[in-house]
Structures are given as C-alpha cells and as structure tokens.
C-alpha cells in the first residue's frame, strides 16, 4: 500500500480525508487494542490532518498517542460509571 500524502488528502473532500486517514490508522490501532480500535481511531481523527500524517510516518509517536487515547478513554469510562446512577 502506498503511503498517504498531503496531496492525496488535499484532492479529497474533508470528510473523506478523515476516512482515508482512518483507514490507515485503524489496522495499526487494531493490532494493539483490538476491542477499542474503532473508538481510538475516532478519537485520533479529531487531531489535525497534518499531525495525523506525521503520526502515520512515526510508529513510535503513534504508539504513544494511542496509549494516551486509551488512558483518556479509560479515565472517562471510570467517571461515567461513577456518575451513571440516575
């Protein structure tokens, strides 16, 4: 699969750009966090496209960003379950 470039992205409409990046991110995230892959991908897709392209080129940065997303998600879920009594 050829790498995703800024010019490839620029040729697509904004919503499609996120989908294109998501299609690249998802398998990488799925390999690390199978059950949370869709959610984590969605969270990361809120980052600027230019930064997402950098993450795709840097497995180490991507991994730390994924770990950050998991931590945020778990903290959020813990809060949710505490508040979800009414």
């Amino acid at each position: 699969q050829e790498p995703l470039t800024a010019s490839m992205l620029a040729a697509a409409p904004p919503q499609e750009q996120k989908q294109m990046i998501g299609e690249r991110l998802y398998p990488l995230i799925h390999a690390m966090h199978t059950s949370l892959a869709g959610k984590i991908t969605g969270m990361l897709l809120e980052i600027d496209n230019s930064e997402l392209l950098l993450l795709l080129e840097s497995p180490e940065s991507l991994r730390s960003k994924i770990e950050e997303a998991v931590a945020v998600l778990q903290a959020h879920q813990a809060t949710e379950s505490t508040h979800k009594s009414g």
Binding site: P27, G38, K39, T41, M43, L44, L45, E68
Partner: peptide
C-alpha cells in the same frame, strides 16, 4: 498535563479492513 483527545469522539468504522473472526 491535560490531553487534547476527546473520549466522546465518534467511533470510526473502517470500510476496507476485514476483521478476523
């Protein structure tokens, strides 16, 4: 430090990635 990631983000649905069952 506070993370910029949003836990309420919409879940991504892959078009092409086939999940092994």
């Amino acid at each position: 430090r506070k993370s910029t990631l949003n836990p309420n983000a919409k879940e991504f649905n892959p078009r092409s990635f086939a999940q092994p069952k």
